[in-house]
Write a protein that binds this DNA or RNA. Structure first.
Lengths: 184, 184
DNA sequence: GTCTATATCAAGATAGAC
DNA sequence: GTCTATCTTGATATAGAC
Protein backbone atom coordinates (compact mmCIF):
# COMPACT_ATOMS: atom_id res chain seq x y z
CA UNK A 1 0.00 0.00 0.00
CA UNK A 2 1.50 3.32 -1.01
CA UNK A 3 2.25 5.74 1.82
CA UNK A 4 -0.22 8.31 0.59
CA UNK A 5 -3.25 6.09 0.26
CA UNK A 6 -6.09 8.18 1.63
CA UNK A 7 -8.15 5.13 2.53
CA UNK A 8 -6.52 4.93 5.95
CA UNK A 9 -5.53 7.75 8.26
CA UNK A 10 -2.05 7.15 7.05
CA UNK A 11 1.08 7.02 9.12
CA UNK A 12 2.76 9.95 7.46
CA UNK A 13 -0.08 12.21 8.48
CA UNK A 14 -0.17 10.81 11.98
CA UNK A 15 3.54 11.50 12.33
CA UNK A 16 3.24 15.04 11.00
CA UNK A 17 0.42 15.70 13.44
CA UNK A 18 2.68 14.49 16.21
CA UNK A 19 5.46 16.83 15.08
CA UNK A 20 3.02 19.70 15.14
CA UNK A 21 1.89 18.91 18.67
CA UNK A 22 5.46 18.61 19.88
CA UNK A 23 6.71 21.82 18.27
CA UNK A 24 3.78 23.82 19.60
CA UNK A 25 4.01 22.32 23.06
CA UNK A 26 7.76 22.20 23.58
CA UNK A 27 9.29 24.64 21.11
CA UNK A 28 11.72 24.18 18.27
CA UNK A 29 14.68 23.32 20.42
CA UNK A 30 12.98 20.35 22.02
CA UNK A 31 11.48 19.08 18.80
CA UNK A 32 13.76 16.12 18.38
CA UNK A 33 13.18 12.92 16.52
CA UNK A 34 12.93 11.12 19.83
CA UNK A 35 10.23 13.45 21.08
CA UNK A 36 8.26 12.89 17.89
CA UNK A 37 8.72 9.16 18.25
CA UNK A 38 7.23 9.24 21.73
CA UNK A 39 4.41 11.59 20.79
CA UNK A 40 3.45 9.64 17.70
CA UNK A 41 3.51 6.27 19.41
CA UNK A 42 5.54 4.78 16.57
CA UNK A 43 9.08 3.55 16.91
CA UNK A 44 12.13 5.43 15.79
CA UNK A 45 12.65 3.05 12.92
CA UNK A 46 9.07 3.51 11.83
CA UNK A 47 9.26 7.28 11.86
CA UNK A 48 12.57 7.30 10.03
CA UNK A 49 11.17 5.01 7.40
CA UNK A 50 8.67 7.67 6.38
CA UNK A 51 10.92 10.67 6.95
CA UNK A 52 14.55 9.67 6.50
CA UNK A 53 15.89 12.70 8.38
CA UNK A 54 14.86 15.45 10.68
CA UNK A 55 14.92 17.93 7.82
CA UNK A 56 12.53 15.75 5.89
CA UNK A 57 10.24 15.72 8.89
CA UNK A 58 10.19 19.49 9.15
CA UNK A 59 9.90 19.97 5.42
CA UNK A 60 6.85 17.74 5.60
CA UNK A 61 5.32 19.90 8.31
CA UNK A 62 5.96 23.12 6.41
CA UNK A 63 4.42 21.68 3.27
CA UNK A 64 1.38 20.49 5.13
CA UNK A 65 0.87 23.80 6.95
CA UNK A 66 1.21 25.77 3.74
CA UNK A 67 -1.24 23.52 1.94
CA UNK A 68 -3.77 23.96 4.73
CA UNK A 69 -3.35 27.72 4.72
CA UNK A 70 -3.79 27.85 0.98
CA UNK A 71 -6.96 25.80 1.12
CA UNK A 72 -8.48 28.14 3.71
CA UNK A 73 -7.32 31.15 1.78
CA UNK A 74 -8.85 29.99 -1.48
CA UNK A 75 -12.18 29.25 0.10
CA UNK A 76 -12.44 32.64 1.72
CA UNK A 77 -11.10 34.35 -1.37
CA UNK A 78 -13.76 32.88 -3.61
CA UNK A 79 -16.44 34.13 -1.25
CA UNK A 80 -14.81 37.53 -1.17
CA UNK A 81 -14.60 37.80 -4.93
CA UNK A 82 -18.19 36.65 -5.32
CA UNK A 83 -19.19 39.50 -3.02
CA UNK A 84 -17.40 41.95 -5.32
CA UNK A 85 -14.91 43.17 -2.73
CA UNK A 86 -11.33 44.12 -3.55
CA UNK A 87 -9.06 41.15 -2.93
CA UNK A 88 -6.82 43.20 -0.69
CA UNK A 89 -9.60 43.33 1.85
CA UNK A 90 -9.59 39.60 2.07
CA UNK A 91 -5.88 39.51 2.85
CA UNK A 92 -6.42 42.12 5.52
CA UNK A 93 -9.26 40.19 7.10
CA UNK A 94 -7.23 37.03 7.36
CA UNK A 95 -4.36 38.71 9.12
CA UNK A 96 -6.38 40.96 11.35
CA UNK A 97 -8.09 37.94 12.86
CA UNK A 98 -5.40 35.36 12.41
CA UNK A 99 -5.70 31.65 13.13
CA UNK A 100 -3.93 31.48 16.46
CA UNK A 101 -3.07 27.84 16.29
CA UNK A 102 -1.48 28.06 12.87
CA UNK A 103 0.34 31.16 13.98
CA UNK A 104 1.85 29.26 16.87
CA UNK A 105 2.93 26.51 14.53
CA UNK A 106 4.60 28.97 12.20
CA UNK A 107 6.24 30.79 15.04
CA UNK A 108 7.69 27.58 16.35
CA UNK A 109 8.79 26.59 12.89
CA UNK A 110 10.57 29.88 12.50
CA UNK A 111 13.58 28.82 14.52
CA UNK A 112 14.08 25.79 12.35
CA UNK A 113 13.30 27.59 9.14
CA UNK A 114 15.78 30.33 9.82
CA UNK A 115 18.47 27.70 9.95
CA UNK A 116 17.39 26.01 6.75
CA UNK A 117 15.90 28.63 4.43
CA UNK A 118 15.18 26.03 1.76
CA UNK A 119 12.40 24.74 3.97
CA UNK A 120 10.56 27.98 3.32
CA UNK A 121 10.27 27.30 -0.39
CA UNK A 122 6.62 26.19 -0.37
CA UNK A 123 5.59 29.21 1.69
CA UNK A 124 7.53 31.58 -0.53
CA UNK A 125 5.83 30.04 -3.49
CA UNK A 126 2.35 30.47 -2.11
CA UNK A 127 3.12 34.06 -1.20
CA UNK A 128 4.32 34.77 -4.71
CA UNK A 129 1.13 33.39 -6.22
CA UNK A 130 -1.12 35.34 -3.88
CA UNK A 131 0.73 38.56 -4.54
CA UNK A 132 0.76 38.05 -8.28
CA UNK A 133 -2.99 37.78 -8.16
CA UNK A 134 -3.28 40.96 -6.13
CA UNK A 135 -0.94 42.97 -8.31
CA UNK A 136 -2.64 41.79 -11.44
CA UNK A 137 -5.98 43.34 -10.59
CA UNK A 138 -4.78 46.36 -8.67
CA UNK A 139 -5.46 49.86 -9.91
CA UNK A 140 -2.59 51.19 -7.83
CA UNK A 141 0.17 48.59 -7.61
CA UNK A 142 2.42 50.61 -5.34
CA UNK A 143 -0.34 51.14 -2.83
CA UNK A 144 -1.24 47.47 -2.98
CA UNK A 145 2.36 46.63 -2.27
CA UNK A 146 2.39 48.92 0.72
CA UNK A 147 -0.74 47.29 2.07
CA UNK A 148 0.85 43.87 1.60
CA UNK A 149 3.98 45.08 3.35
CA UNK A 150 2.02 46.48 6.26
CA UNK A 151 0.36 43.10 6.64
CA UNK A 152 3.74 41.42 6.47
CA UNK A 153 4.74 43.79 9.23
CA UNK A 154 1.80 42.69 11.37
CA UNK A 155 2.74 39.09 10.76
CA UNK A 156 6.36 39.84 11.54
CA UNK A 157 5.45 41.24 14.93
CA UNK A 158 3.16 38.35 15.65
CA UNK A 159 5.80 35.84 14.74
CA UNK A 160 8.56 37.43 16.76
CA UNK A 161 6.44 38.80 19.58
CA UNK A 162 7.99 42.04 18.45
CA UNK A 163 6.15 44.90 20.11
CA UNK A 164 2.75 43.47 19.23
CA UNK A 165 -0.02 46.01 18.72
CA UNK A 166 -2.82 46.41 21.21
CA UNK A 167 -6.15 45.17 19.93
CA UNK A 168 -7.44 48.71 19.56
CA UNK A 169 -4.42 49.77 17.53
CA UNK A 170 -4.63 46.68 15.42
CA UNK A 171 -8.28 47.31 14.68
CA UNK A 172 -7.59 50.94 13.81
CA UNK A 173 -4.81 49.91 11.45
CA UNK A 174 -6.94 47.29 9.78
CA UNK A 175 -9.80 49.72 9.35
CA UNK A 176 -7.49 52.24 7.75
CA UNK A 177 -6.00 49.62 5.49
CA UNK A 178 -9.47 48.70 4.36
CA UNK A 179 -10.14 52.35 3.76
CA UNK A 180 -6.97 52.74 1.69
CA UNK A 181 -7.95 49.82 -0.49
CA UNK A 182 -11.57 50.66 -1.01
CA UNK A 183 -10.91 52.01 -4.50
CA UNK A 184 -8.68 49.17 -5.61
CA UNK B 1 41.77 44.55 35.64
CA UNK B 2 37.99 44.66 35.13
CA UNK B 3 36.67 43.00 31.95
CA UNK B 4 35.38 46.26 30.51
CA UNK B 5 38.45 48.37 30.82
CA UNK B 6 38.56 50.35 27.60
CA UNK B 7 42.29 50.91 27.76
CA UNK B 8 42.93 47.64 25.95
CA UNK B 9 40.96 46.17 23.07
CA UNK B 10 39.33 43.94 25.59
CA UNK B 11 38.75 40.24 25.32
CA UNK B 12 35.00 40.42 25.57
CA UNK B 13 34.84 42.59 22.49
CA UNK B 14 37.32 40.42 20.63
CA UNK B 15 35.20 37.37 21.39
CA UNK B 16 31.97 39.05 20.31
CA UNK B 17 33.62 40.09 17.08
CA UNK B 18 34.61 36.50 16.53
CA UNK B 19 31.03 35.35 17.13
CA UNK B 20 29.83 37.86 14.60
CA UNK B 21 32.29 36.63 11.98
CA UNK B 22 31.35 33.02 12.59
CA UNK B 23 27.61 33.55 12.50
CA UNK B 24 27.81 35.58 9.30
CA UNK B 25 30.20 33.18 7.61
CA UNK B 26 28.82 29.83 8.72
CA UNK B 27 25.23 30.43 9.76
CA UNK B 28 23.45 29.93 13.02
CA UNK B 29 23.63 26.17 13.04
CA UNK B 30 27.39 26.11 12.86
CA UNK B 31 27.84 28.85 15.39
CA UNK B 32 29.01 26.67 18.22
CA UNK B 33 31.16 27.54 21.16
CA UNK B 34 33.97 25.53 19.64
CA UNK B 35 33.79 27.45 16.37
CA UNK B 36 33.95 30.71 18.28
CA UNK B 37 36.88 29.40 20.26
CA UNK B 38 38.80 28.63 17.09
CA UNK B 39 37.85 31.90 15.41
CA UNK B 40 38.74 34.02 18.41
CA UNK B 41 42.04 32.30 19.03
CA UNK B 42 41.27 31.97 22.73
CA UNK B 43 40.73 28.70 24.49
CA UNK B 44 37.37 27.28 25.45
CA UNK B 45 38.03 28.00 29.09
CA UNK B 46 38.93 31.56 28.27
CA UNK B 47 35.81 32.16 26.24
CA UNK B 48 33.61 30.55 28.85
CA UNK B 49 35.15 32.69 31.51
CA UNK B 50 33.75 35.79 29.86
CA UNK B 51 30.50 34.27 28.67
CA UNK B 52 29.49 31.40 30.92
CA UNK B 53 27.11 29.85 28.38
CA UNK B 54 26.21 29.93 24.75
CA UNK B 55 23.11 31.97 25.52
CA UNK B 56 25.26 34.55 27.25
CA UNK B 57 27.45 34.71 24.18
CA UNK B 58 24.51 35.34 21.90
CA UNK B 59 22.88 37.77 24.29
CA UNK B 60 26.14 39.68 24.21
CA UNK B 61 26.08 39.84 20.44
CA UNK B 62 22.47 41.00 20.33
CA UNK B 63 23.17 43.71 22.85
CA UNK B 64 26.20 44.91 20.97
CA UNK B 65 24.42 44.96 17.61
CA UNK B 66 21.46 46.82 19.02
CA UNK B 67 23.70 49.38 20.68
CA UNK B 68 25.53 49.97 17.40
CA UNK B 69 22.29 50.33 15.49
CA UNK B 70 20.96 52.78 18.02
CA UNK B 71 24.09 54.91 17.84
CA UNK B 72 23.83 55.15 14.06
CA UNK B 73 20.15 55.82 14.28
CA UNK B 74 20.54 58.65 16.76
CA UNK B 75 23.21 60.35 14.72
CA UNK B 76 21.20 60.31 11.55
CA UNK B 77 18.05 61.23 13.41
CA UNK B 78 19.55 64.36 14.88
CA UNK B 79 20.60 65.46 11.41
CA UNK B 80 17.14 64.70 10.09
CA UNK B 81 15.41 66.65 12.83
CA UNK B 82 17.77 69.59 12.40
CA UNK B 83 16.77 69.66 8.73
CA UNK B 84 13.11 69.90 9.77
CA UNK B 85 12.00 66.68 8.10
CA UNK B 86 9.33 64.40 9.53
CA UNK B 87 10.98 61.67 11.58
CA UNK B 88 9.18 58.99 9.62
CA UNK B 89 11.29 59.89 6.63
CA UNK B 90 14.39 59.04 8.54
CA UNK B 91 13.09 55.58 9.41
CA UNK B 92 12.24 55.03 5.79
CA UNK B 93 15.68 56.10 4.62
CA UNK B 94 17.43 53.72 6.95
CA UNK B 95 15.45 50.73 5.79
CA UNK B 96 15.39 51.56 2.14
CA UNK B 97 19.15 51.53 2.04
CA UNK B 98 19.90 49.12 4.82
CA UNK B 99 23.32 48.26 6.19
CA UNK B 100 23.90 44.94 4.50
CA UNK B 101 26.40 43.64 6.97
CA UNK B 102 24.23 44.33 9.99
CA UNK B 103 21.32 42.84 8.16
CA UNK B 104 23.23 39.64 7.65
CA UNK B 105 24.12 39.56 11.31
CA UNK B 106 20.50 39.98 12.31
CA UNK B 107 19.32 37.40 9.85
CA UNK B 108 21.74 34.87 11.21
CA UNK B 109 20.84 35.75 14.74
CA UNK B 110 17.21 35.22 13.96
CA UNK B 111 17.55 31.46 13.93
CA UNK B 112 18.98 31.49 17.39
CA UNK B 113 16.70 34.17 18.69
CA UNK B 114 13.60 32.36 17.56
CA UNK B 115 14.45 29.65 20.05
CA UNK B 116 15.08 32.04 22.89
CA UNK B 117 12.82 35.05 22.52
CA UNK B 118 14.21 36.64 25.70
CA UNK B 119 17.36 37.40 23.74
CA UNK B 120 15.34 39.82 21.66
CA UNK B 121 14.60 42.04 24.65
CA UNK B 122 17.16 44.77 23.87
CA UNK B 123 15.93 45.02 20.29
CA UNK B 124 12.31 45.11 21.36
CA UNK B 125 13.19 47.84 23.76
CA UNK B 126 14.92 49.99 21.20
CA UNK B 127 12.01 49.54 18.82
CA UNK B 128 9.57 50.63 21.48
CA UNK B 129 11.54 53.79 22.16
CA UNK B 130 11.83 54.68 18.49
CA UNK B 131 8.14 54.15 17.92
CA UNK B 132 7.14 56.10 20.97
CA UNK B 133 9.06 59.03 19.62
CA UNK B 134 7.37 58.72 16.23
CA UNK B 135 3.87 58.40 17.62
CA UNK B 136 4.38 61.29 19.95
CA UNK B 137 4.93 63.82 17.19
CA UNK B 138 2.67 62.33 14.56
CA UNK B 139 -0.33 64.24 13.28
CA UNK B 140 -1.90 61.00 12.08
CA UNK B 141 -0.93 58.16 14.40
CA UNK B 142 -2.71 55.45 12.47
CA UNK B 143 -0.96 56.40 9.26
CA UNK B 144 2.36 56.54 11.06
CA UNK B 145 1.70 53.07 12.37
CA UNK B 146 0.98 51.80 8.90
CA UNK B 147 4.21 53.28 7.62
CA UNK B 148 6.09 51.62 10.45
CA UNK B 149 4.37 48.34 9.69
CA UNK B 150 5.23 48.57 6.01
CA UNK B 151 8.85 49.07 6.97
CA UNK B 152 8.63 46.11 9.32
CA UNK B 153 7.31 44.20 6.33
CA UNK B 154 10.33 45.19 4.26
CA UNK B 155 12.59 44.10 7.07
CA UNK B 156 10.68 40.87 7.47
CA UNK B 157 11.24 39.99 3.85
CA UNK B 158 14.88 40.90 4.04
CA UNK B 159 15.38 38.82 7.13
CA UNK B 160 13.64 35.74 5.82
CA UNK B 161 14.54 36.12 2.15
CA UNK B 162 10.82 36.09 1.75
CA UNK B 163 9.94 37.21 -1.77
CA UNK B 164 12.29 40.18 -1.61
CA UNK B 165 11.26 43.17 -3.70
CA UNK B 166 13.11 44.16 -6.83
CA UNK B 167 15.11 47.32 -6.46
CA UNK B 168 12.68 49.24 -8.63
CA UNK B 169 9.72 48.11 -6.58
CA UNK B 170 11.51 48.91 -3.36
CA UNK B 171 12.34 52.39 -4.58
CA UNK B 172 8.77 52.96 -5.68
CA UNK B 173 7.47 51.83 -2.31
CA UNK B 174 9.91 54.02 -0.42
CA UNK B 175 9.04 57.02 -2.55
CA UNK B 176 5.37 56.51 -1.90
CA UNK B 177 5.97 56.08 1.81
CA UNK B 178 7.82 59.35 1.84
CA UNK B 179 4.93 60.90 -0.01
CA UNK B 180 2.42 59.54 2.49
CA UNK B 181 4.38 61.00 5.38
CA UNK B 182 5.12 64.40 3.94
CA UNK B 183 2.39 66.04 6.01
CA UNK B 184 3.30 64.32 9.24
C1' DG C 1 6.24 -1.22 7.20
C1' DT C 2 7.46 -1.32 11.77
C1' DC C 3 10.43 -2.76 15.56
C1' DT C 4 14.85 -3.03 18.84
C1' DA C 5 19.32 -2.14 19.56
C1' DT C 6 23.23 0.30 18.97
C1' DA C 7 26.90 3.16 16.68
C1' DT C 8 28.57 7.70 16.24
C1' DC C 9 29.26 12.14 17.15
C1' DA C 10 29.22 16.80 18.47
C1' DA C 11 27.78 20.11 21.70
C1' DG C 12 27.63 22.45 26.08
C1' DA C 13 29.70 22.67 30.29
C1' DT C 14 33.08 21.66 34.41
C1' DA C 15 37.46 21.06 37.10
C1' DG C 16 41.53 22.31 38.25
C1' DA C 17 46.46 23.62 36.81
C1' DC C 18 49.13 27.69 35.75
C1' DG D 1 42.28 35.61 33.29
C1' DT D 2 43.56 31.98 30.45
C1' DC D 3 44.79 27.22 29.60
C1' DT D 4 44.16 21.80 28.98
C1' DA D 5 41.67 17.92 29.75
C1' DT D 6 37.60 15.63 30.53
C1' DC D 7 32.66 14.60 31.50
C1' DT D 8 27.81 14.23 30.19
C1' DT D 9 24.19 14.46 27.49
C1' DG D 10 21.30 14.01 23.93
C1' DA D 11 20.67 13.87 19.04
C1' DT D 12 20.99 11.79 14.26
C1' DA D 13 21.30 7.87 11.93
C1' DT D 14 22.17 2.71 10.75
C1' DA D 15 21.68 -2.40 10.85
C1' DG D 16 19.15 -6.01 10.88
C1' DA D 17 15.23 -8.85 13.07
C1' DC D 18 10.28 -9.56 12.61
Amino acid sequence: MPPNDASKPDTRTAILEAVERVIVRDGARKTTIDAVVIESGFSKGGVLYHFPSKSALLAGLVERSVAQFEADFQLALDASVAAGEPIERHLIDIHCAPDLHKQTVFRSLLAVIAEEPELLAPARDLKRRIEARLMETSKDPVLTRIVILAIDGLMHRDLLDFSPLSETDRDAVCARLNDLTKDL
